[in-house]
Nucleic acid binder design. Sequence first.
DNA 1: CCGCTTCAGTGACTAGGTCACACAGTGGCG
DNA 2: CGCCACTGTGTGACCTAGTCACTGAAGCGG
Lengths: 218, 218
Amino acid sequence: MSDWTRDFAILDALDEASRTQLLAHSHAMQAPAGTVLFREGSPCQAYLFLLQGQIRVQKVGENGREITLYRVESGQTCIVTTACLMSGNDYDAEGVAETAIHAQALPIPAFRQLLADSASFRDFVFRAYGSRIADLLLLIEEVSFGRIDQRLAACLLQRARGQAALSTTHQELAAELGSAREVISRQLKEFERRGWIRLGRGQLQLLDAGALQQLAGK
Amino acid sequence: MSDWTRDFAILDALDEASRTQLLAHSHAMQAPAGTVLFREGSPCQAYLFLLQGQIRVQKVGENGREITLYRVESGQTCIVTTACLMSGNDYDAEGVAETAIHAQALPIPAFRQLLADSASFRDFVFRAYGSRIADLLLLIEEVSFGRIDQRLAACLLQRARGQAALSTTHQELAAELGSAREVISRQLKEFERRGWIRLGRGQLQLLDAGALQQLAGK
DNA sequence: CCGCTTCAGTGACTAGGTCACACAGTGGCG
DNA sequence: CGCCACTGTGTGACCTAGTCACTGAAGCGG
């Protein structure tokens, strides 16, 4: 088995024949961090597996505001790509590499063939759909009914991943949540006033993760 | 071919063997208008085709506010159901019959079998996914970045479907858009002040569809 | 050290959501 | 017919979030 397949969970689930088929017909591709992989309106030619790295999929409004829809991580696939593929429409979101990425592209005919041949591949594809749709529904709920302070608190905790500090700008946080930079700045200032965090240029420290947790969880 | 299959577009696309398979393993079900077909947290046992009628799929927030995610119409399938089915999770949305409905339910094993056997069935399922995901992304964009007056204007036009009058309450419109009744009332009042519509209890008339169109399209 | 760029802070204002309450149609029922 | 409950609508006061315009501070390259 070649090197890149190590992190590629789906391969374990596939039978030998399907695996061979997959490897034979797909080709490797890679891109540096910051690459725009696809944008709204561009067509879509291949089914994409992400082998290594992270992709942010986002919507960009006319006024320039952004919101992150979800992230594609190692071993996952991008359902917006798949959705376009199957329905024949163009992309209606934008994908940006957050890190350098290695991916494997499976052209449409080979994709269809594999779908036909392998039950485990079908399962993988459908499971991906299912969990993404759940993500999107949750996002709609948060955007429609959620409070920005709670969403921000959750966002900070998630980004910190247990670390006490994280490097990010207010603008990035705003783009994550689909809000405006000024709003985030004010909320963060309020968090700092309460002693939950300490602000610095391009970075911030979590002083009281518990308080954030409580706010986020409410 | 039995009676209910008339409006069932997918049957035309399926080969004879798959069609027979589909009909043999699914069973008919029906429900009156207003029935809650599924709600958040309930599990999911079968793949559902809607033969006749209309289903509204919505999210309900803790505070009671609602937002319509999409509608399932005759000949379509509900992807939230499918998503749950394949990922094994419970529903994370609520489905309500807006009219009396006739549906056909295909139990999971038969669904998987059909997916394996019929390329055209796979296409149907995937195409449904693709267009729904596009819908959801559009909804996220509107909710995040859109203006409520524009969304309301679009909603009125869509509901009127060329008719000059429509019967609905402000509360229903608010639930459609994920907004609050008072907000909708005020917007409608403003539309009336501009001479675009005339308000009545439980119904309203469109006087200047063009103006609404222009507002909605901006 | 200077000047440019990026990042953050702030006040004034607008849009939209919440709360509390008033009041008007409508339909049932004595 | 008149009373009454229920549902739908109108409205003011207030709060949260987003927008606009601007200031100033931090870092960085020359």
